[in-house]
Design a protein around this nucleic acid. Structure first.
Lengths: 244, 244
DNA sequence: CGAACCCTTGACAGAAATCAACTAAGGTGG
DNA sequence: CCACCTTAGTTGATTTCTGTCAAGGGTTCG
C-alpha cells in the first residue's frame, strides 16, 4: 500500500487513538489494490478474512436471497466495511461490489483481532465504531418498518438537503436504481414516488433534486433524529452536493 | 440486587471474562427492580443512562414514528439490551416495555464505559457482544427487504422448529400481534399468512403450530443461515417449545 | 453506428394495510 | 357464580401500496 494512505487511515475514528507501533504493524500486514467498477469484492457467506477500507471510489454492500437482491449500504472514502464479520471470524452477511473504480485496502482480520486484544485504545475505538454501525442498521430497519416507500424517499431527500446545509437543490450521489434498492423499493416505484412528491415540494431534473417547498417536504418526510440520524453535518458543506 | 443474580449475570458472554474485581464493582453500582407487565422501561429519544439486563420475564424493544409503532426485538432472560446507546452515551433509538412481569437489572452506563476502558477483557467481550447485535439487526433488515411477509412467517416457523430440535410442533413464544409486528406486518396479515400456509405444510391450533409437511414448509421458507441465523441450537432442546 | 443500459411511463397483478364485524377467551366486579 | 367488559384473534370487504411486465426515450460506450 502507498505510504500516503496511512495518514488518511489514521484519521479514521477506528485508528485514531491506537498506539503508533500497533498502527504500523497493522498497516504492514495490509494489502492495497485498485478494482474496476462493478467488481464483486466480497461474496456473502464466505469467511471474513479481511477488513476492507475504501480509499477512493464507492462500494455497495448488498445481499441476496433466492433470485432477489437488495442494497444494504453504500460506502464512500474513507471508511471501513464489514468490521463485524471480521471480529466474529464469521461468514460475511453481505456481499460487496465496487460501484465505480475504487482503491481498497485490506487488513487481515486475524491481525485485527490480535490488535484489539493488545491495544486497549484500539479496543475502545472498535467498540465505538461497532456501536455506530449497529445504530445505523437499526435506523435503516426502523425506516423500512415505519415508513412507506414514498415517505422514505421524502425523508431521504430532506436529509440530503440537510447534510448539504439545507440546500434547496442537490445532485443525487448515486444511480437511481441503487438508491431505490437502498430505500427498499423497485426503480419503477422510486420513479413514481418522486413524481408523486411534486405536489409536496420536490422537483427533479435528471440527477438533480430541487426542493420547491421545504415546508411541504418536511411535512411528508417527518424527519426524525432517531431514524434519519442526528444533524451532525448541518451547516457543513457536503461532498459536492451543494448547489446550484 | 440479589446476591444470587450475580452468578447468572456472570454467565453472560459479556461479563464472563472480565476480572472479578471489576465485575464486583460494576454489580455494586447496579440496581435491580421488578416491573409489572406492559410497563414502559425506556422511551426512545431519552438519554441512555442504564444498561438493562432481563433476569426474569420478557421485554419488547419497539420503535415509533408518528402514530405508527413496530416491534424491533423481544428480549428474554438472561440478556442485556440497548448496549450500543449506553456505549455511545447517545439517545436510545428504541423504546422498551415489559411484556410480562419482569425483573430487570440496571447498570449505570457511565460505570459501563469506565469499565471497558479499565478492563481489556471486558472491552473484548463488549466488542463481541456488539458484533452479535449488529449482525442480528442486519439479518432482520435482510429478511424485511428480501422476503415477503408470507415468506417471513414461513421462515420464522421453520426456524423455531429447528431451534426446538426439528420439532414438528411448538407453541408460539409470544402473542401473535407482537410476533406480527416483529415480522413487520399487521396482525390481520399474519393471520392470513398462516392460513395461506396450510397448503404448504403448516397448521395452527390456538398458540400451537403444527408442521404437517416439513419439506413443503422448507420450500416456502427458504431458510438461510445468513438471514435466519446459524443453526447453533439444532439438536438441543429449546426452552419448553418442544412438543407435542 | 449500434448495443447496452438507465430511466420513465402505462397497464396490470399481487401484496399488504385498513376498516368493520364477529367470536372467543380471560379478567373484573357485583 | 355469573354478568359484564375488555382484549386477542379471525374473517370479510375494500382500498392503498408495491411489484411485475412491457414498451419507449435517452444516454453512454465500445
Amino acid at each position: 500500500m502507498r505510504e500516503e494512505d496511512k495518514p488518511e487511515i489514521r484519521k479514521l475514528l477506528l485508528f485514531r487513538t491506537m498506539s503508533p507501533e500497533n498502527f504500523e504493524r497493522l498497516m504492514q500486514a495490509a494489502y492495497a489494490h485498485s478494482f474496476p467498477a462493478q467488481l464483486e469484492l466480497i461474496r456473502q457467506g464466505e469467511p471474513a478474512d479481511f477488513l476492507h477500507i475504501v480509499m477512493e471510489g464507492t462500494v455497495e454492500l448488498f445481499s441476496g436471497w433466492r433470485d432477489r437482491e437488495t442494497a444494504m449500504a453504500v460506502v464512500r472514502p474513507v471508511s471501513t466495511f464489514i468490521l463485524a464479520a471480521c471480529i466474529k471470524d464469521a461468514p460475511y452477511l453481505m456481499s460487496a461490489r465496487t460501484v465505480e473504480k475504487s482503491r481498497i485496502i485490506m487488513i487481515p482480520s486475524k491481525d485485527l483481532r490480535a490488535t484489539f486484544r493488545l491495544d486497549p485504545e484500539f479496543a475502545v475505538s472498535t467498540i465505538t465504531e461497532l456501536a455506530n454501525c449497529y445504530r445505523s442498521v437499526v435506523r435503516h430497519a426502523k425506516g423500512l418498518k415505519l415508513r412507506t416507500s414514498r415517505e422514505r424517499v421524502a425523508a431521504y431527500i430532506y436529509r440530503q438537503s440537510s447534510i448539504a446545509g439545507n440546500a434547496v437543490s442537490f445532485v443525487l450521489p448515486m444511480e437511481k436504481r441503487l438508491l431505490a434498492s437502498l430505500l427498499g423499493m423497485t426503480p419503477e416505484n422510486f420513479s413514481r414516488a418522486i413524481k408523486s412528491l411534486q405536489s409536496d415540494g420536490v422537483a427533479m431534473d435528471g440527477m438533480r433534486i430541487i426542493i420547491t417547498n421545504m415546508k411541504l417536504l418536511e411535512a411528508v418526510a417527518g424527519p426524525d433524529a432517531l431514524i434519519d440520524g442526528p444533524d451532525t453535518n448541518a451547516g457543513h458543506f457536503g461532498s459536492g452536493l451543494t448547489g446550484p
